[in-house]
């Protein structure tokens, strides 16, 4: 079984985010890391391929600057190869363009039984790309999967809902978006990290894939203003020395909650 996983390389979320004042988009300079949300999809794919006993996991990613450090992490976990769409003309692309590009990259890799993506990235969290990709590819999809199994050409998913979960079945090929926590992502071993250095990462441009890069101009949206949100007034912060719970009781009394 062959599985393609969509991965995003993002600025380290531990560092505070910043908008580029000239373009008003998220700054993506410097080292990028594998989005933690995607590590679940990579792990899920590796487990499915392991269970099937044949096939491999491939990665697709899009980044404006040829960045591969996040991809290397996923390769070190056990993915076999990657296609990186790197093209300065893609800077400023909206989610729809991203989906078109990733769909073309998936096609380039060829017949996959399953395409896996996270439900949303940790930096942009638009949350539309997986389902848009499925539509571009004319594929069925199951979103918000909290467990995934593949048996004889059918993918079976427990799909998270507002009220609980649904059991959903779908013939492959299909696209599945997985929630964080679906599996425990493995840590890359030293051997895996060494092996990842020589695994193939094919770098292509949007034009190579036959997608017209649109970037800023074609995004059909323009940021016109960035403003500071009204800040909450600073509250009272106290150190607990054994009696702080009384302060909470007093606060709740003041609000007439108790």
């Amino acid at each position: 079984m062959n599985v393609i996983v969509c991965v995003k390389q993002i600025p380290d979320p531990a560092q505070p985010g910043e908008l580029d004042p000239s373009t008003n988009t998220l700054k993506r300079e410097g080292k990028l890391i594998l989005d933690e949300s995607d590590s679940y999809g990579v792990e899920m794919a590796l487990q499915l391929v392991d269970k099937a006993g044949e096939g491999e996991v491939s990665l697709i990613s899009m980044a404006p600057n040829g960045e591969v450090s996040g991809l290397r992490t996923a390769l070190a976990m056990g993915a076999a190869k990657a296609v990186l769409v790197s093209d300065p003309d893609l800077a400023g692309s909206d989610a729809l363009t991203t989906a078109k590009v990733l769909a073309a990259a998936a096609k380039k890799l060829g017949d996959a039984d399953l395409i896996i993506a996270a439900t949303e990235s940790s930096d942009g969290y638009t949350g539309t790309v997986p389902e848009q990709m499925a539509e571009v590819l004319g594929m069925p999809s199951i979103t918000f999967a909290k467990s995934v199994a593949v048996e004889g050409g059918t993918v079976k998913v427990a799909r998270q809902t507002e009220a609980g979960y649904d059991e959903v079945e779908c013939p492959t090929p299909a696209l599945v978006s997985v929630t964080a926590g679906v599996v425990e992502p493995r840590y890359p071993s030293f051997k895996g990290i060494m092996a990842a250095k020589s695994k193939p990462v094919e770098e292509v441009t949007a034009a190579d894939l036959g997608v017209t890069p649109v970037g800023w101009a074609g995004a059909d949206q323009q940021i016109v203003d960035v403003a500071q949100a009204p800040a909450r007034e600073a509250g009272e912060i106290i150190e607990d020395e054994g009696e702080a719970h009384l302060k909470i009781v007093e606060f709740l009394e003041g609000l007439k909650v108790i």
Binding site: A134, E135, G138, M139, P140, S141, I142, R159, T161, A163, G164, Y165, D166, E167, V168, E169, C170, P171, A174
Partner: peptide, 13 residues
């Protein structure tokens, strides 16, 4: 093909 996914059971917590 896009209609391939079908709900087979619903669980309410």
């Amino acid at each position: 093909a896009t209609g391939g996914a079908k709900v087979t059971a619903v669980h309410v917590e």
